[in-house]
Design a binder for these strands. Structure first.
Lengths: 237, 237
DNA sequence: CGGTTCCTTGAGAGAACTCAACGTCGGTGG
DNA sequence: CCACCGACGTTGAGTTCTCTCAAGGAACCG
């Protein structure tokens, strides 16, 4: 279902920060009344990398967040103190879906880079769920998408396939032309893809030697997406 | 949230096959009217292993299914013709959540063994969503659970950890005393856990040599769950 | 500037895979 | 009735991919 870009009847009731919001795919678009608008869209102060937690694993979910700018990661810390990145959330994505309705959040969430998010308090969301079927479908849809992504990633793939799929996915979501500005470190990428940091490096070097891309730290330029696509195809992200 | 076992106001409106249903956790328990009961619960003829598909990958989801007896597997076939099991569904589980709201189902579903399921047509489900918020919460909750399971499994674990977690999970769901009657083959277990068939065998043999269990083909008897639990703990299924 | 974190490359180790072989079981057809 | 076939389960041997350990250079921050 493509997103409806035509002006909604509620457009005139939108808060000022919504009118200037770069994100098109947002929970707020499902709001039907001015009351709902302000319930649903609470712009939060800018977030610095790693300075705050939106969600704390083990505690109840305080709110559901829509990323407006930047990048948020969901992660867990295992018994040995190692971090495991579960997801990267880019503008338009919802943070907290994995905890919605659960007593305790399964993962923490924190900004990877300078970020801005909108928050919907869980109480308000529950109220919205009761009354607005469009909210429901939106949430169910997004949760299903997250499930699909997790399923795809849980498959049995080589390091090359994983990295290729990751690059294409990130490119599709925040790429500008052929260029990707990666917000996260190699270690975080490796944690997300279940690869050692060194393996991520080696794969990138390998791709670069083949002329498929140019890697300058966090700036990746894709030269030959077809090759990456051939590799990543089985992953089906 | 523990399931409410007290007679619901709708109990007298239940179809005959519901009164005799062994499954307690079912979409039907959310029905509020006689109309909903029959909309939601359509008992299907018994299914033989591998003889039919409930869901066909690539096609729209025809209905959502609740497993009443047996075991259903969700799976995909990759470009090389290899099967990848995404999930095993036991009595009480919903089949098709990963396709709900999507144009095309991401995975097929077929019985692993002699099974019985109830079906809710997608149209009826949508109607239910509009009117009954309890449906929604149920669906969202189940989808979130599936997401949690996928996330847990997508982690980076050893073969021993995976198999231990799998055995405990299956035991919790369909175990009788210390005994598990596995409905699926070693190949299917390996496909689900992203391990070679031989590796699954070797791990089971290893566990048996340590006295943790007795493995006689599809019949597994757990002797020392603590040891398995210690291994599986990081997986957090 | 030090100190820390990140990125990169090399060398060796280990876990799981592939290939191969064999016994068992259940179904099928001569 | 039984021989045959295919699928399944198990075990062994060798290989391969990724990890771990180690080290050096670059970038960033206080």
């Amino acid at each position: 279902m493509a997103f409806d870009l035509s002006p909604s009847p509620a457009a005139t009731q939108a808060p000022a920060h919504c009118l200037a919001c770069p994100v098109q795919r947002c929970l707020s678009r499902k709001a039907e009344t001015a009351e709902d608008w302000h319930r649903v869209v609470g712009l939060m102060p800018p977030l610095q990398a790693g300075r705050s937690k939106l969600v704390e694993a083990g505690l109840p979910l305080p709110a559901l967040f829509t990323v407006r700018a930047g990048c948020i990661k969901s992660y867990t810390i295992d018994a040995r103190g190692n971090e495991h990145v579960r997801a990267f959330h880019f503008p338009g994505d919802l943070v907290g879906l994995d905890a919605l309705g659960a007593r305790r959040a399964p993962a923490s969430a924190t900004p990877v880079t300078f970020s801005q998010v909108c928050a919907v308090k869980v109480e308000d969301l529950d109220a919205g769920i009761e009354r607005n079927p469009a909210f429901n479908r939106h949430l169910l849809q997004r949760t299903r998408e997250a499930l699909g992504r997790a399923m795809a990633l849980s498959g049995e793939y080589t390091a090359d396939q994983r990295v290729a799929a990751f690059l294409l996915d990130v490119h599709a979501r925040i790429g500008v032309g052929d260029v990707i500005r990666l917000p996260m470190t190699r270690r975080e990428i490796g944690s997300y893809l279940r690869l050692a940091t060194e393996t991520v490096c080696r794969v990138l070097t390998r791709f670069e030697k083949r002329g498929w891309l140019t890697s300058a730290d966090k700036r990746i330029t894709l030269h030959y997406q077809e090759a990456l696509r051939d590799l990543a195809e089985p992953v089906g992200l």
